[in-house]
Amino acid sequence: MKGHLDSISTHLIYAVTKSQTILSELQQAKGINQDYLNNAIQGNKLIASSSAALNSKLTSYQDDISNIANQLKLTSDSDIVSIITVLQNNPKTMGHTLVSLFNVKDESIYKVSTFGAAFLPTYITLSIWVGCTMLVMVLHTKIPRENRRFKNMTVHEEYFGKMLTFGTVSLIQTAVIIFSSVLLLHVQVESLFIMLLFGFLTSILFTTIVYTLASTFGNLGKAVVIFLVALQLAGSGALYPIQLNPAFFRAVYHLFPFAYSVGGFREAVGGPNMVTVFTDAFALLLMIGVTLLLGYFLKARLQRFTRRILSDFSNSGIGQ
């Protein structure tokens, strides 16, 4: 009897233990199902929000799609064939069609009417330089010291006195060039005052450079004057943009008087940009001051050296 009771007790204990195991597994399964259920709810909410956003986008495009559909209804099959043919065989027409969709408005800020007016700054600058060159070719750069009136005159007095004469004649030439261009040729000039201002500065600067070279170095200086005009025409932006020039000219561009003279005259012809006007005018004034200082110090110091070179050059029979 006791043995049977022990056996029943053992089975009951085993059954209770098994039941506890099953309940534990059921509890874990319930937790997993709960996680799956939460994830499913979150996924449904995300899908609902995405659907609402997509519906809003489609609604906003509804009118555009309707308009396109109405336009397509007006297009026949032959029209579609023609359009495809044009797009495949005539790209110029396609490009013109695409460009015509935009309204492009051109507005000239500094308008120059003719090529002659555009070339006027280069013409005036070159004319002033050539005029100064002709003066040193025709007129004497030295005073006749055999004359008793000039016998005791110093080198510096000779330098500034002669320069005053050359400068006066050069100013007259410049005035003739400018007024003949405006009054006789009727070339476009937006600001006559700026034209005359840069004519005055250019005339003084070119006279200073040309006369200093000719009076200090004689015929050699005159040869340098001819070389400088060719160099500046090529490398100062007078004929075409400086950006198209070789690297050498782009590097020394700002050292050429022609660059600032032509720039100032362009402002007078096309309409002044005052920043550029003041910049070019200041550069010309600075060059005048530097040239005068160099001429003042070099005229006396190089006088003997220049005389000896010119004498040897003349005695050689090659030059005069």
Rank of each mutant, 00 (worst) to 15 (best):
13 I>Q: 14
16 V>M: 07
17 T>R: 11
17 T>C: 03
18 K>N: 13
19 S>V: 05
19 S>T: 11
20 Q>S: 12
31 G>W: 04
34 Q>I: 06
37 L>S: 15
42 Q>M: 06
49 S>G: 02
51 S>F: 02
56 S>A: 12
59 T>C: 00
60 S>N: 08
62 Q>S: 15
63 D>K: 12
65 I>H: 01
67 N>L: 06
68 I>Q: 07
71 Q>H: 06
79 D>A: 09
82 S>T: 15
83 I>G: 09
85 T>W: 03
87 L>T: 02
92 K>F: 07
96 H>M: 10
97 T>F: 10
98 L>V: 13
98 L>G: 09
99 V>M: 04
102 F>G: 03
105 K>P: 01
107 E>D: 11
108 S>N: 14
113 S>R: 10
113 S>Y: 13
113 S>T: 15
115 F>C: 00
116 G>Y: 06
118 A>F: 15
120 L>M: 12
124 I>Q: 03
125 T>Q: 08
126 L>M: 11
129 W>F: 15
131 G>W: 05
134 M>G: 11
139 L>V: 05
149 R>L: 12
150 F>G: 00
151 K>Y: 10
153 M>W: 02
159 Y>M: 11
162 K>M: 15
163 M>H: 09
165 T>S: 11
166 F>A: 03
168 T>N: 01
175 A>C: 07
180 S>A: 12
180 S>H: 00
184 L>N: 02
190 E>M: 08
192 L>G: 01
193 F>R: 02
195 M>C: 08
202 T>Y: 01
205 L>T: 07
205 L>Q: 05
206 F>Q: 07
214 A>L: 04
215 S>N: 07
220 L>M: 14
234 A>P: 00
235 G>H: 05
237 G>H: 07
239 L>I: 15
240 Y>G: 03
241 P>C: 00
250 R>P: 05
253 Y>I: 02
256 F>A: 11
256 F>C: 03
258 F>N: 14
259 A>S: 14
259 A>E: 09
261 S>Q: 08
264 G>M: 06
265 F>P: 05
276 T>P: 00
280 D>C: 14
284 L>E: 07
285 L>V: 15
287 M>P: 08
290 V>C: 13
300 A>Q: 09
306 T>Q: 10
308 R>Y: 12
312 D>C: 07
313 F>R: 12
315 N>Q: 11
